[in-house]
Structures are given as structure tokens and as C-alpha cells.
Amino acid sequence: MALLEMQGITKIYNQGKIEVPALRGVDLTVEAGEFTTIFGPSGSGKTTLLNMIGCLDKPTAGRITFDGQELRELDKKALAMVRRYHVGFVFQSYNLIPVLTAYENVEFAIRLVNKYHKKEIRDRVLQILDAVGLAGLAGRKPNELSGGQKQRVAIARALVKEPKLILADEPSANLDSKTSEEVLQVMLKMNQELGTTFIFSTHDPRVMEYARRLIEIRDGLISKDQRRESEDVSD
């Protein structure tokens, strides 16, 4: 069964009396464990599509099924629960809580799902920080970390609750080439080891090199959907 199915997704924003279509009937199916990149020029509808997938926004028309559940039927609270338990987000600007340490930022996400004991929480947080290469930096606050380290904390925060899907919006935009490479390696490793589904929104060619599926979006429509063989992919 597909993790995500989108049929005829349309999203129209109203700017005063003017209707601005962001998506015009998108059909998309994502299987569990995919490492997918959505790319396209600015204003093509990438972020809008990502918001629909992440249950942050509702489509004007169309149907979204996530893990077998029709999202249209869910109220605000139920959508929050889907995000809390099954979706992780990685943002371009990291969006870490500045007063919390790297450990606490990750701990916050796992505490929200409320299914682990205290010791288990500690073990999992330290384990995931170790996995993203931040073993010795758990006690540092975001302002004491580099851009790449912050993004690793954000990845650890998204991964720690073992979500089914991680959505990453321009994850490499604020990173230099080397750091960007390292961060993508971490995500790829998590995809391979944990089977977590990753969907990126980007126009960074470095990210596209890692993707096993490339989806191009133009003017609110999918213009290209290309699956790549392993030998074409960097790893």
C-alpha cells in the first residue's frame, strides 16, 4: 500500500478578489521508503505541495490519503496528531528553539509522542544524536553550533520519533557544499537504515543528485516524474 496518495489536488489562494491557483490538479503517489525530491522554479507550487503532504494545509479540491487515512475527513486536532506521530519536518532555517540545547530540542519532539519511558527517551535521543554525528555536542545551544550542526539537530528532531515520512523544505539552502553533502549523507543513511520516507523540496542540484525519484513541478502541475536507478544516484 502506498504511504501517500494525492488525487486531483488543487489549491487556490485568494488575494483580495483575485484567485491565485498554486496547484492545478496534482496526482501523486509515494511509496514507503522513497527518497524523493520535488524541484522546480520559485512559485511553481513546491512548498504548497509539501504543506498539503505534511497536513499543514488543506486542498481547495482533491483527495489526499496518508497511510490509508483520508485527510479530508480529519479535523484540526486529528491533523495535528498525524503530524505529531507520523510526520517529521526539516526546515531551511532549522527552526530550533534557541533556549534549548541540542539534546532538549530533540527531546521535545519525542516527548510530544508520549510513548516512551524516561530512560528510553534519553537513550533514543543520545542514539539519534550519535547517528547524525553530534554525540559530543548534546549540551550545546543552537547559537553554539554551526549551520551544518544545526541542520543535523533538526534532522535528529525529525527522526527521533520514528515518523513514517520526513518532509524537508530546502534543507541545504543555508549550507555550504561540504556541509550540505554531509547532511544529505546523514538523511540518506537514515533512509537506508530506518526505511524512513523522505520528500525534499529544493532547486539545489546537489540534493537532486541523491534523490531516487525526481518530480518536477511547473505552474502547479507535475511536469516530470522520473525514477532513477541506484547506479545513477550519489551515495
Binding site: L56, R84, Y85
Partner: peptide, 14 residues
């Protein structure tokens, strides 16, 4: 505001 958006994305209720 951005942080609030992030928290909502993480699944915090209103």
C-alpha cells in the same frame, strides 16, 4: 511566529 509555525508542524495543538 516562525517558531510557532514550527511547533504546529511538529504536531502541537492550538
Amino acid at each position: 511566529t516562525k517558531e510557532i509555525g514550527m511547533m504546529t508542524a511538529m504536531g502541537l495543538e492550538s
